[in-house]
């Protein structure tokens, strides 16, 4: 429906923006209610989330476990640092691949945008070791990344 933008900001952040045809309240709830989260936060097709815990309060714990049904799986743990419903979520998360990755602080905001919502998610660009672990997790879909795509995706991001 709406196109996602993913850009790098400076040398350390990734910023993702996406519009939704729903109110900030609805989009916020979909990010905090485990019954809803488990229906969409699944990554590539074929993955499921058999464990979805989000205590939805400041200081509350997060634990998401993913499985691709083919022996691939990893989990994420985190804590909620700030909540300002329905506009802002700040949490910290780390992947267990099973090696644990450095903490990633993620700020997600939801702004009313016409009849819908603009979501902006700002997170750390993972270090090279974390990226390597993620790429080895079975989530990748071909490593034939080309300089042509680098032009399309990355240069625009840096220039933005």
């Amino acid at each position: 429906m709406s196109k996602l933008t993913l850009t790098t900001e400076g040398e350390t952040f990734i910023v993702v923006k996406r519009r939704f045809a729903a109110s900030p309240e609805d989009v916020y709830r979909a990010h905090m209610d485990p019954a809803l989260i488990a229906q969409w936060l699944l990554g590539p097709d074929g993955w499921t989330m058999p464990v979805c815990i989000n205590e939805a309060k400041v200081g509350g714990k997060i634990r998401y476990e993913w499985n691709n049904g083919k022996g691939g799986g990893f989990f994420l743990t985190g804590e909620i640092l700030e909540l300002a419903p329905p506009h802002r979520i700040v949490h910290v998360e780390r992947m267990h691949m099973p090696g644990v990755t450095p903490d990633n602080r993620v700020t997600t905001t939801f702004e009313a945008d016409g009849a819908g919502t603009l979501m902006t998610m700002r997170m750390s660009l993972p270090d090279a070791a974390t990226r390597k672990a993620m790429l080895g997790s079975g989530m990748e879909r071909g490593m034939e990344a080309s300089y042509a795509r680098f032009e399309a995706l990355f240069v625009k991001g840096v220039a933005a």
Partner: peptide
């Protein structure tokens, strides 16, 4: 390698948000 990571992330997020829609 960096490009491959960003591509994987973008793909996973696109799938997520299409489902969320």
């Amino acid at each position: 390698e960096l490009d491959a990571y960003l591509d994987m992330l973008r793909h996973a997020l696109e799938r997520n948000y299409d489902r969320l829609d």
